[in-house]
């Protein structure tokens, strides 16, 4: 009883700010303006404009997840390999940006990538052709990778660093060279961390609208932007909710896929 009463504040919180809003979204998503049931809001995703945004979102999120994985995996291996004090400092360096506000970090990239921005100026200074990255899908991927990379590194590092050194030694002892040890032993054992990292990068990338607004200059619409506009610009809460439900479906599917591989060890955040 004692323990149950302690969870009360959270239960109230969850009901007020998670469950009830979710029910509202479902209500709005499944009804029209007159309040009668309709699937039209869900079907709205099929319109050319919406489905283009959804597929662009999926594509860019997938790309940034893959880039994060390629960057994070070797780094996590190196970090866990240097077992002595040094790794603590490097990890600190990676976590440091996470303490800074997400908006600030993204805004910093606007300044860096902007036409006549820092990167452009430096390139021009060396007589090279300036780069126009801002307001392109590439800039959005840049932002996603930068913002979400730590969420890929940490779970992988966490799992890899817990692999018993003697398990790796055993593989070497049984004749495996470094590469065979990596793909036959270390990688399979690190899968829970990899899956966890993929979820933690893919889901926020899929739903972001801030990164695309700031780095896409409002010209590139992701599904997050579309939903935001439906709500904020007052077009239709019903369509916005319907699209949210569709997006939620994609998120739930990716969570189910990942939970199949993840046995809980990789959940660090």
């Amino acid at each position: 009883m004692y323990k149950k009463s302690l969870s009360c504040p959270f239960l109230i919180w969850a009901a007020a700010f998670i469950i009830i809003p979710l029910l509202f979204i479902m209500y709005y998503g499944l009804t029209d303006k007159s309040g009668s049931f309709t699937m039209a809001n869900l079907m709205a995703v099929a319109t050319a404009e919406h489905s283009k945004a959804l597929f662009l979102s999926l594509g860019l999120s997938l790309l940034s997840t893959v880039i994060c994985l390629i960057l994070a995996y070797p780094l996590a291996l190196i970090l866990s390999g240097s077992r002595l004090g040094k790794s603590g400092f490097v990890i600190f360096l990676f976590i440091l940006p996470m303490w800074m506000n997400f908006l600030l970090r993204t805004l910093a990239w606007v300044v860096l990538l902007d036409t006549n921005g820092v990167l452009d100026t430096i390139l021009k200074f060396f007589g090279l052709k300036g780069m126009k990255i801002i307001n392109t899908p590439a800039a959005i991927v840049f932002g996603m990778v930068y913002d979400f990379l730590p969420f890929m590194i940490l779970p992988i590092y966490n799992v890899v660093s817990k692999i018993d050194v003697n398990v790796i030694n055993a593989a070497r002892d049984l004749g495996a060279n470094s590469f065979q040890t990596l793909y036959k032993v270390i990688f399979p054992l690190s899968l829970p961390g990899v899956v966890s990292g993929i979820t933690m990068v893919f889901v926020p990338s899929l739903t972001t609208f801030v990164i695309s607004t700031l780095l896409g200059g409002g010209k590139i619409l992701l599904i997050g932007n579309v939903i935001e506009q439906e709500f904020m610009k007052g077009t239709s809460w019903h369509i916005g909710s319907g699209l949210s439900l569709v997006l939620m479906l994609f998120i739930i599917v990716s969570m189910i896929l990942s939970s199949k591989y993840d046995h809980g060890e990789g959940n660090v955040l």
């Binding site: 018993d164 055993a170 032993v185």
Partner: peptide
């Protein structure tokens, strides 16, 4: 030569 490790070190996967 082959080694038998203290904590077995089996491949759990």
């Amino acid at each position: 030569l082959n080694t038998v490790f203290q904590k077995y070190a089996l491949f759990t996967h």
